[in-house]
Write a protein that binds this DNA or RNA. Structure first.
Lengths: 220, 220
DNA sequence: GCGTGTGAACTGGTTCACAGCG
DNA sequence: CGCTGTGAACCAGTTCACACGC
């Protein structure tokens, strides 16, 4: 069975909730309960989970850890993968220090920057390289994910270089849209300004009395 | 005409592109060109833009600044609104220093934290308050947006407090899903771990040979 | 002829309703 | 009797194809 993109998103969100709830009291989770927690109708979740197959006893709800591991397995959330940080300025450093990154399944194995001085002064528990070695390091170490933290005006070029080096995914923290479809490379934008504007838009339309169907604005 | 959520997202993305391109050479933008830049088929964009009405001459393309201002007006991107930061730790400080925030149309007028010491030592060009004054300040100043930067375990309670105080939108930077549908409050999650897992999932499915229709993984 | 605008066809994701198991 | 699993109905958004203005 193929999963649709919305379904994948909900499953990833479910994964966190389920993993948080798989703690001490071995409760059982109903689709209604989960739906409430996530802001999604229960039948949608039932469909989503049904796609995984085999989880959930008909009649009682879902077992948290069964659900958790089913999602993780189906989506490969535990697959160990290598990541690198491109751009070690303020933003890159912040990302680099994010404690919970380990939970993602990725391990950061390299950092790149154009500024040689910065490379020498920075303290990191992974190797740092000048950018001109980027392609080679990525290939040699089979790095799959790049955390793109360069200044906005360098984003396009960096992305091209990364794709040329065979990267598989890019988390784009720069405020620059990397839309140019490059087949096979997964790109996700984490864009503060964009989200601000989304809120603004939704508020505006809502204040004008536009329906704005379903409260799922936090999703999608 | 009502706009759908996917349409709104594309228009917001378009807005940035158009505003970047409205510079020196007064060119004209075709839907094909824009589509390529955004990774979206041209006819989809044509539909989206057509919703705005009146932009675009049949035959030649779109005028960048006309497009820009049409989007801004329709979505209220230039509407001045007030925002506050809730939680002034490492994350909150980073958000607070984000230079380009001004472009969003919001101005930050207040910051809140439980830690009184922190309030006294922090340097900001807006007023800082202890949390117990939060509801009152939000109401008095008619603050519409909250940038939620508290620790994960405080996220739920803070969100409740904000909603109780009449906030209209929340940008949730905490790794905690705020799904619980609260009618009328726009919530958007900016979640690093979630995005990492999304990439992981998409790579996994893709490597298994699942179709993963359309390269629009960066959208939605 | 290039490129927008748009009504009509289509696709696929969501919603519904009910069968079935604990 | 509560709650999951699922096939059928529904609907929104995307895709297509063509008419029209420059």
């Amino acid at each position: 069975m193929d999963l649709s993109l919305p379904t994948i998103k909900r499953l990833v969100a479910l994964y966190r909730i389920a993993s948080e709830l798989q703690g001490s009291p071995p409760q059982t989770l109903s689709s209604a309960k989960l739906g409430q927690l996530l802001g999604v109708p229960s039948h949608t979740l039932r469909k989503d989970i049904a796609n995984l197959g085999g989880v959930g006893t008909t009649g009682s709800g879902y077992n948290p850890q069964a659900l958790c591991s089913a999602i993780a397995q189906r989506l490969g959330l535990h697959t160990p993968r290598k990541a690198c940080i491109v751009g070690l300025g303020r933003l890159g450093s912040a990302v680099m220090h994010y404690e919970r990154f380990g939970e993602s399944g990725y391990s950061i194995v390299a950092g790149f920057d154009t500024n040689i001085n910065r490379l020498e002064t920075l303290r990191a528990d992974f190797a740092l390289y000048p950018v001109y070695e980027m392609a080679e390091v990525i290939r040699r170490q089979a790095i799959e994910l790049a955390l793109l933290c360069v200044p906005a005006d360098a984003a396009g070029a960096s992305a091209q270089a990364l794709i040329g080096a065979g990267i598989r995914g890019i988390l784009n923290f720069t405020p620059h849209n990397l839309g140019g479809g490059h087949q096979g490379v997964v790109i996700r934008n984490i864009d503060f300004l964009f989200e601000c504007r989304m809120v603004s838009s939704l508020l505006t339309l809502q204040q004008q009395g536009s329906p704005l169907k379903s409260a799922d604005t936090s999703f999608v």
